[in-house]
């Protein structure tokens, strides 16, 4: 199919992008890396969009250390997340996640902001930022606001980004000494979206477990987290079993995904124990 595009404009800076969006009569659509949006347009799943290309807005890209946290620009590409020394040191979960995302050509173009705004329930980054307890920075013509990761994802492909707003970046807490980050997933082929995946962050304050591809949005497994805090791995697995109700599709049934979530949890815990033993 050939895409049916309403129009295209390249934004020179954030303000320009926001103005283009507000002048688009509700048809504006942010274009970042294009790795999800263009595919959807080529299937005519999205038609008539007025594309606002933010890919040249330079101050939305890159990583900086703000003391307690890392600030990651929305346009930072997957490949940069994988290689950036600040992220590798202070938020290794994100850099480790990249190996599971798509293929090199897509990772060279796709952006973390695009992945988060797209909010595919099977994507890695949304679950990562949930596990990390990140904050999302959103800007509109009338101001900025911060949203906690736990409030950001609303439903399948739905986030709390409002009309005319742009996600400018995220802040993640820097890992404490001794903090462990793990991501585990099972996909049919390397680069495919996961059949089920799990992020585990172990901090002094407790465990954080976020799952992806097991529901309409990434999910923080609170009961399982409490069980892990008690050192009860089987209790945590059972909590996943009881709480998850994953969807079925042509790749796998809900029952299989639920089973997988438990296997991944046990493996992640075993790997942390193996690493610290």
């Amino acid at each position: 199919m050939k895409a049916s595009v309403g129009g295209y404009a390249r934004a020179s800076d954030l303000r320009h992008a926001l103005e283009l969006l507000s002048g688009s009569g509700g048809l504006g659509r942010v274009l970042a890396g294009g790795q999800s949006l263009i595919a959807a347009m080529n299937m005519r799943l999205s038609a008539g969009d007025l594309l606002v290309d933010i890919s040249r807005v330079s101050d939305l890209s890159g990583v900086s250390d703000t003391g307690e946290r890392l600030l990651i620009g929305a346009l930072t590409r997957h490949v940069e997340i994988a290689g950036n020394p600040l992220i590798r040191e202070h938020a290794p979960l994100l850099s480790r996640a990249v190996q599971y995302i798509a293929h090199a050509a897509i990772r060279n173009r796709g952006t973390i902001g695009g992945a988060l705004a797209h909010a595919d329930p099977a994507a890695e980054f949304p679950a990562c930022i949930l596990a990390l307890g990140a904050t999302l920075h959103i800007e509109g013509l009338h101001g900025r606001r911060d949203v906690a990761a736990e409030d950001f994802f609303q439903d399948i492909f739905e986030t709390s980004i409002g009309e005319g707003e742009i996600l400018t970046g995220i802040s993640v807490p820097k890992a404490e000494a001794g903090e462990a980050h793990l991501i585990e997933e099972v996909a049919r082929r390397s680069g495919d979206y996961a059949l089920a995946g799990l992020c585990l962050v172990k901090r002094a304050a407790g465990h954080r477990v976020a799952l992806f591809s097991v529901g309409p949005k990434p999910l923080l497994a609170r009961t399982a987290m409490t069980a892990l805090d008690r050192g009860d791995v089987e209790g945590a697995a059972k909590a996943l079993h009881d709480e998850l109700d994953p969807p079925s599709d042509t790749q796998a049934s809900g029952a299989y995904r639920r089973h997988l979530a438990q296997v991944l949890l046990r493996r992640a815990v075993a790997r942390i124990e193996g690493a610290t033993a």
Binding site: A252, A255, H259
Partner: peptide, 14 residues
């Protein structure tokens, strides 16, 4: 598929 193999092993409950 991974699922068919697990079903053959009898580890999945629906």
């Amino acid at each position: 598929t991974p699922e068919r193999i697990l079903r053959a092993l009898g580890v999945l409950e629906d």
